[in-house]
Simulated scan of single mutants.
Amino acid sequence: MTVTVDIWTDINCPFCYLGKRRFEEALREFPQRDGVTVVHRSFELDPTLAPGTSAPVVEHIAQKYGISVEQAAANERGIAAQAGELGLAYRTQGRDFGSSFDMHRLLHHALAEDRQDALLDALYAANFADEEPAFGDRERLVEIAVRAGLDEVRVRAILDDPEAYADAVRRDENEAAAIGATGVPFFVFGGKYAVSGAQPSETFARALQLVWDEQLVPIGVESADTCGPDGCAVPDADVPRAGSGD
Score class of each variant (00 low, 15 high):
D172A: 06
A177R: 05
P185N: 00
A164N: 10
A122Q: 06
A126F: 07
D6H: 06
E131Q: 12
L18E: 01
D246R: 13
A129K: 10
S68R: 11
D160R: 01
F135I: 00
D130W: 10
F204M: 07
R170P: 03
G136Q: 07
Q93N: 10
A50H: 13
T226P: 03
G19A: 12
S99E: 02
G66Y: 14
D102E: 15
F15K: 11
Y90T: 09
V5W: 07
V234H: 12
D160T: 01
V195I: 14
T48Y: 14
A177C: 04
I179W: 00
E152Y: 13
A118Y: 14
L86R: 08
A198N: 04
D96F: 09
W8D: 00
P200H: 03
V58R: 09
G98I: 07
F189W: 05
Y193T: 02
A145P: 04
L120S: 05
G191M: 08
K20L: 13
R156Y: 15
V5T: 03
E132G: 09
L45G: 05
D96S: 05
I67A: 11
T92Y: 03
A89P: 11
A83E: 15
L141T: 01
V142K: 12
Y90E: 15
H40Q: 06
V217P: 00
L18G: 04
Y65W: 12
E163R: 11
M103H: 06
Q63M: 15
T226N: 01
A177F: 08
D225Q: 10
A168F: 04
S54D: 04
A72W: 04
A110M: 09
D160C: 02
E202M: 10
A81H: 15
D117S: 14
A126V: 09
V188N: 00
I219K: 01
S196Y: 07
R77E: 13
A110T: 05
D96V: 03
S223G: 09
S42Q: 10
D117V: 03
V3C: 12
V195N: 04
G190S: 13
N75G: 01
A233N: 15
L208F: 01
M1W: 12
